[in-house]
Design a protein around this nucleic acid. Structure first.
Lengths: 127, 127
DNA sequence: TCCTTTACGGATAATTTTATCCCTATCGCT
DNA sequence: AGCGATAGGGATAAAATTATCCGTAAAGGA
């Protein structure tokens, strides 16, 4: 997230805040989900989340790495091969992500409609 | 979040994204937590999350309201009295928040240290 | 030699979110 | 009339995040 020095001190008083610190980022939970599902290579991840900007996905991968959520292995082959995996620590996030995934799937329609009501700019739901 | 028209269409493809849409916001999970714990009045909430800017808390309360997470009751007394409560829908978020709270509390120290290593600007943990 | 594939990141712009400041309104009390 | 307590929001600045563009590197193959 911060590739620059941030100015306002962040608060880690609340448990939720701590978790949010790790999970917040437009694609982080998706990235974790991808990796958990065996898509280890950056390429695969980019293809899966094609709405996402590569640069951003890379940044967020970097942060996940620095927060010990994913590990990174570089193979010295060519073309280059890199593999990310969840660390043990990272795996402890899985229950959270899966419950979020579940809640989101159950309520996607409702949230979508409320968002439309608010005239938000939402990409149409795929069929 | 958006009090203006947003330009980049948001994606609700993934369950997690949907959930994030509802939960993302610097203080939203905290606000929900407060309300769940009986702090119904804005005043109480502001006092509890005193690091948070009032204006922002109000904004986020407003969004939670528009997403049917909280309900709002205005009493015509003076001084004014307002009470927020979780809706049934809002209550379905509680398991998510509580698991996040738990994870965060367990790992606060570790995340804190990693953040310091990254030279992030973190408010010192209270004792 | 040029093109492809893979992975990555600098520089910068654009967008979105948060922070700051200060004003409104209402009633009861002094 | 002036003040306190309550809840809220307009206008705008600042900060943080995400998007866009394009360049690097390295080996193999046409």
């Amino acid at each position: 997230m911060q590739s620059y020095e941030n100015k306002i001190p962040q608060d880690l008083e609340y448990g939720v805040t701590v978790t949010m610190k790790v999970l917040a980022g437009k694609w982080k939970p998706c990235i974790i989900d991808c990796i958990a599902n065996g898509m280890k290579r950056p390429n695969q991840i980019h293809k899966k989340i094609k709405q996402a900007n590569k640069r951003v996905v890379n940044q967020q991968l970097g942060e996940l790495y620095e927060y010990d959520i994913v590990s990174k292995k570089v193979y010295q082959e060519y073309p280059l091969k890199v593999e990310y995996e969840l660390t043990d620590f990272g795996r402890t996030l899985l229950p959270i992500i899966s419950i979020m995934e579940e809640w989101g799937n159950e309520n996607a329609q409702k949230i979508y409609e409320l968002a439309i009501q608010r005239k938000e700019n939402i990409a149409p739901l795929e069929v």
